[in-house]
Design a protein around this nucleic acid. Sequence first.
DNA 1: AAGAGTCGCA
Length: 527
Amino acid sequence: MARASASIATFLRQFRGETQTQARRLTVECSESESSSDGSSAGGNPDLGEIAKEVSNLIRTKPRWEQTLRSDFPSFNFADSQFFQELLKHQTNAFLLFKFFHWLRSELDFIPSIKTWNSVLQCCLKLGKTDLLWKMYQDMMETGVVADIDTDTVFCLIDAFAKGGEAGKGYELLKQLLKDGLPLQNAPFIKLISAFAKRGENDVVSELLHTMIARTMRPDVHTYQEVINGLCKNGMPLEALKVFNNLKDRGYAVDRVMYTTMIHGLCISKHVSYAKELWLEMIRKGIVPNHYTYNALIHGYFKSGNVEGAKELYKEMSDRRNCGETTVAYNTMITGLSMNGKNDEALELFKSMPEKGMVRDLISFNTLILGLCKEGRTVESRKLIEELLALGLHPSASTYSPVIQKLCLSGDVQEGIILWNEMQNKGLQPSAWTYHHFIAGLCKEKGYETEAMEWLFVMLKNNLKPKQSIFERVVQCLLQNDRVDDSLLVLNYMVKVGYSLRGIVINHFLWCKLPKNNPLFVKQNNS
DNA sequence: AAGAGTCGCA
């Protein structure tokens, strides 16, 4: 593995704000990477694997292994890095491994080599714990291995940046590797492409693809799958389809996941006919649709109003593939039915779930509540919320939002306030859209202008941008209650977030406040 | 080896 250059080390220090690293200590395992890395089980000590297996079992089953381990293996050197590598192979529980790693370092003065550190970092990534990774990385830098950092380390860091929403920093690192002319693999490219594609930053995605191609690294189907997924999620399904067709023309083996991703992307943007074409094409090629594929197309049919088609497909999935009786499949059906005004059918399915031994999850509840609210059935929706809480499920903002919105729209603001408070008490953050409905509802009700203003400020504090019309509603509402100073305060905020004064607001002022002593108004009256 | 799916977007 190539050692990373000094410039990378400097670069990394800038990123995470490390303090000066300590003087580098001599490592007891300095020769590890040269001599023994290739022969982990064949070369060297044949007992190592066996002992690793034993120790692995021990730390899994014995509660206080820390106290007895050394006397259990009196002459064994646990601080042998090869041993730790062996242990990594046998230990599947990463947290236990971290505990052991910590024990080695604190009790036995174990000084891990860069290879060991890399394995630890990879473990963090596997667990999806990027915060833990950065903590480990900090530790690692403090032990002074900074000069040993190799491309494996940097790959881990790039992955962590990509996963942690800092793809930009990851890309900077990759650029540094490129500049240093170090040998690269597909992996870091794929992670970054995936991250940028998800964010819809297509120019960066194509830049990365071009870099790969220029370095004769052939991006694989998996890479392109991320690209296609990103394009679809960002509302560019037809561009995704172009990439997809282009891949087929270039002889890539397009598999079931690719087809499913593409079909799903087309379905969510209402291009069902293209999706159906692909569906037939994959069957012609002998690729059997699985429950992901079925659900995607069923959802697409419902979305385009083809209820019969969706039902037929569902029946086929149940009869021929035997995967109709799952929570996901039912949720898809419930969503689709209530989206198409068939709430009673959806309700029936929903009610039959426990009888059939299926678990109803939050999505089952949320989708049904949404559908019922669309028809104004807020009483039933509230009952569903009670039921969900009784089952011990944790509601989300979209559990409450549709009910609050409907209540506010239909003038039942009092009930809306009750639910709003319940939602606040559970620490759920409403969407900007829900705030709008709620604030508008408060404005409609007499005597709630202070609340309306306060919730508008809460929105701003939570970095949500209220619509201009909501600002104006609140201003109007305040003026009607002679609260000129407060209305000016709200206007001030409105301008601060980038809106300009519109005629409507000026009219509110003219009508409500200014006529009495405004010379213009007096003049007009006289003339 | 992994990758893909269910909740509205006014």
